[in-house]
């Protein structure tokens, strides 16, 4: 197994763990009100999107250049 493959496996598992946790936290905080809660929700949502991107990069769907 190459170094890149090991990195991708760890990134894949990490993306799943962090992405699901971020999504669950976002759902828990959905009812919170106020400017700080709103900004936190937007930023948590974008972080979850980042996890999806990292996941797709780890399974070679994104970031594959010829």
């Amino acid at each position: 197994m190459t170094e890149a493959q090991i990195e991708k496996i760890i990134a894949l598992l990490g993306a799943l763990l962090v992405g699901v946790t971020a999504a669950v936290q976002l759902r828990n905080d959905w009812a919170a009100k106020g400017l700080d809660a709103l900004v936190t929700k937007v930023l948590l949502g974008l972080m979850a999107v980042g996890c999806v991107l990292a996941f797709l990069a780890a399974i070679n769907v994104l970031g594959v250049h010829a």
Binding site: E7, A22, A54, A57
Partner: peptide
Amino acid sequence: FDTAFAALNSIVLFGSGVTMH
């Protein structure tokens, strides 16, 4: 650029966001 390592490092940073939350 090295996508595999960047994906791993990204997860480290995103993970820190969750721990801070």
